Amino acid sequence: MLLILHAAVTWALVGLILTIQLVHYPLFARVGLSSWPTYEREHQTRITFLVGPLMLAELLSAAWLALRVPPALPSWSLGLGLALTLAIWMSTGLFQSPLHGRLSVAFDARLHRQLVVGNWIRTLAWLLRGGLCVWWLALSLK
């Protein structure tokens, strides 16, 4: 049951990161300079409310699965899944969040580009995690 919950949370985050990366972040440049600081602060508040609990649930369930490996799954793959989760958290804490903090003062095209380009790390990591979850579910159904 934990594996199903974990996969559901991961795929919710895959959908969210794809929406952010392909739709939301590119549109930041069209907000307008006068509206930007309020928009960015509101974005940070709203996205944290949505993504925070999901990321925490994913981290905790990834750690639990890595520590208590289900019999049908290769332990190395759960370690990889946890490592990808930690990479996402590190990218968020060390790069994405600080860039959002700097952008909350005023829009800066260079910082915006860094945000979009750097976010591909999280996007690709979540896509890999989503693929792992599908594979794990397939293995567990055999």
Rank of each mutant, 00 (worst) to 15 (best):
M1G: 06
L2A: 04
L5G: 00
A8Q: 11
A8M: 09
A8W: 11
V9H: 04
T10V: 15
W11G: 00
W11F: 12
A12C: 11
V14Y: 05
G15I: 13
L18A: 11
L18F: 11
I20M: 13
Y25T: 09
P26R: 07
L27I: 02
F28G: 07
V31Q: 12
G32P: 08
G32L: 06
S35P: 00
P37M: 04
P37H: 05
P37V: 03
Y39F: 15
R41W: 04
H43N: 09
H43P: 13
T45N: 06
T48F: 14
L50I: 15
L54G: 08
M55Y: 08
A57V: 13
A57H: 14
W64I: 02
L65C: 10
A66M: 12
A66H: 05
A66G: 02
A72M: 13
S75L: 04
W76T: 06
S77N: 02
S77A: 13
L80V: 15
A83I: 06
L84F: 07
T85D: 08
T85R: 10
T85H: 09
L86H: 11
A87M: 15
I88R: 12
W89V: 08
M90D: 02
M90S: 10
G93Q: 04
G93T: 04
F95L: 11
S97P: 00
P98C: 03
P98R: 03
L99I: 12
H100Q: 04
G101F: 01
R102W: 06
S104V: 03
S104L: 03
V105G: 00
A106W: 04
F107M: 10
D108F: 10
D108I: 07
D108C: 10
A109V: 14
L111P: 02
H112G: 02
H112F: 12
L115N: 07
V116F: 07
G118S: 03
N119Y: 14
N119L: 12
N119M: 08
R122S: 07
A125Y: 14
L128V: 13
R129D: 01
G130H: 06
C133Q: 13
C133N: 15
V134H: 00
W136I: 01
S140E: 15
L141K: 08
